[in-house]
Computed example of a mutant assay.
Amino acid sequence: MNQTIGVCRYVYNLFLKRNQELYEKEKKFIGGLDFSKWLNNIYTKENDPWIKKVSSKAVKQAIMNGDKAFRNFFEGKAKYPRFKKKRNQDVKAYFPKNNKTDWIVERHRVKIPTLGWIKLKEFGYIPTNAQVRSGTVSQKAGRYYVSVLCEVPPKEKTINNHDGLGIDVGIKNFAVCSNTDVYENINHLPKIRELEKKLKRQQRKLSRKYESKKKGGESCYKNIQKQVKIIQKLHARLTHIRKEYVRDVVTRVAKAKPSFITIEDLNIKGMLKNKHLADCVRKQNFYYFRTYLEQKCKQNGIELRIVSRFYPSSKLCSCCGHKKVCLSLSERFFICDLCGIEIERDFNASLNLKYARNYTIITYR
């Protein structure tokens, strides 16, 4: 697995380097198919023959990923593709299903093409009765993950006759729903704070090793790599805890079976520019919450409504509709100047989102 992932990363970087050289010399771009022919027929005969020791399909997919990255750049959909670093571990090895005996899933193991039978540490996530089309293997923080594409029969669409739901996400509480459900900010829990303190200590330890090496000390490269892996494991653990909490919140919301869900189109990039709130916003995973909510709504047949980011959900009175122009972030209770109602700020925003009239409905293919 290490060898396959390493070759995929090397070939991806080679594709980027080859195109950079061609553009500087001849002002031209070579596509993924042409580069694959050049790699197999010319390059591997003279240099790096070990590329052919791993799965050819995995190498071909790495080339096509680089080709897609360049296409997205030319179309203005993404930035210029960057070289993949071994330390970041953001490379996945692709394995298609070539034979009937490939990608057989059992309770405790899975048969991956070229690699053979691999034991699973966690079981029950991959359905044993589904037909697997392809899969990828990736590595992160010393652990290996397998992700498969399964073909399963579609679920029967359920009819949701319940009332709609408005969800206001924030920093003090992760989500406040119009049905009075409140999901707290998990980053305030003692366990998360303890892990963050431990991460800071380990990062200081790594920084001291680098400083010692710069000054000509005895800091060994292997010790630095061990420390890097410790930090990667802590980052991965925090990420998994936060994403699992987001999935749990979305699952609870979907199980209520509302007829529709309304959320606000947040300007996440703009919020991250605020140096006082950037770290808190990053930890909340608002973008992941929206993408996973879209997926759950599609599965359960729930209508997802998106309200414009300029909609004053916090400044409107949910009782009489009066708009309060001056409302600071420190005011946690909304007091209407017209009708005099006093209501919690985030709950008031969730009610306004629920009864919003101007919205966009997410359509699914």
Rank of each mutant, 00 (worst) to 15 (best):
Q3K: 07
Q3T: 06
T4L: 02
R9T: 00
N19E: 01
E26I: 11
K28G: 14
F29P: 04
I30G: 12
G32I: 01
L33Q: 10
D34T: 09
W38R: 02
L39K: 05
Y43Q: 03
K45F: 04
P49Y: 06
I51M: 06
S55K: 01
A62H: 04
M64S: 05
G66S: 01
N72A: 07
F73I: 03
G76E: 03
R82K: 05
R87D: 05
E106K: 08
E106V: 10
R109H: 08
R109F: 07
K111L: 00
G116F: 15
K121A: 09
E122K: 15
E122F: 15
I126N: 03
A130Y: 14
S134G: 07
G142V: 08
R143A: 14
Y145P: 14
V146D: 14
V148R: 04
L149H: 11
P153D: 15
K155H: 11
N160W: 15
I167Y: 00
N173K: 11
A175F: 02
T180C: 09
N187S: 15
L195C: 14
Q202D: 11
K213W: 04
K213D: 06
K215L: 15
K215M: 12
G216H: 15
I231P: 05
Q232V: 00
K233H: 04
R237D: 02
T239L: 01
H240W: 07
D248N: 07
V253L: 01
N267D: 13
L272Y: 15
L272T: 08
Q284H: 06
Y287H: 00
Q295H: 09
I306R: 13
K315N: 06
L316S: 11
C319E: 13
G321S: 09
S328E: 15
L329N: 14
E331N: 03
F333Q: 10
I335K: 11
C336D: 08
C339T: 01
G340E: 09
N348T: 10
S350Y: 14
L351Y: 05
N352Y: 13
L353G: 02
T360K: 09
I362V: 11
Y364K: 10
